[in-house]
Amino acid sequence: MEPFRQHTGLVVPLDRANVDTDAIIPKQFLKSIKRTGFGANAFDEWRYMDHGEPGMDNSKRSLNPNFVLNQSRYQGATILLTRKNFGCGSSREHAPWALQQFGFKVIIAPSYADIFFNNCYKNGLLPIVLSEVEVDHLFNIVAATNGLKLSVDLELQIVDVPNAETYKFQVEDSRKQSLLNGWDEIGRTLRHNEKIKAYEAARAVREPWIFNS
């Protein structure tokens, strides 16, 4: 995983609550057996006028001019500002893959669905939680300021609005270290392989049927 330390980028506001992972990447694109190639189909049903299917030349499809990601002032956005319970629904990791491959590095919202939140960290995509009031405020600033860029510093746990306030955000230390260092989590867990084996041995005494069935 690529380490994440700081990022400065253009913000796009997606003013909807409960954006589900079916909306982020529709099911027909889940048939891929690869980890890449999802960016062009992020928010497919909202982004394009026609119905998307795998294998289409997306550059030839007409874009929905009303969808915020298609508006010229937000082209090249790398920070997604959105509302509560973002990423609800299915566990598909294709959702953070699609967002990341679209170009997002950071998401800012008041809350996320648990599985999606977890999946973001596994891919070096930073989901920042700010309060509803702070998020509301950011929506107002973004609307009022063309080309607004925010700076995010994971080490310091801050979101910096140029010439204005700085917001502090919380992140669990283990998640932070993992992102800062771009750790291979499996490799780190395997350092405990003796402990895992010892657990299995003890458990097999307590509940042997677990290992027989």
């Binding site: 599985i115 977890n118 596994k122």
Partner: peptide, 12 residues
């Protein structure tokens, strides 16, 4: 769980 975690469980 997501696919990264599927791999994690498979391996560990």
């Amino acid at each position: 769980i997501g696919t990264s975690e599927v791999e994690h469980v498979m391996a560990t």
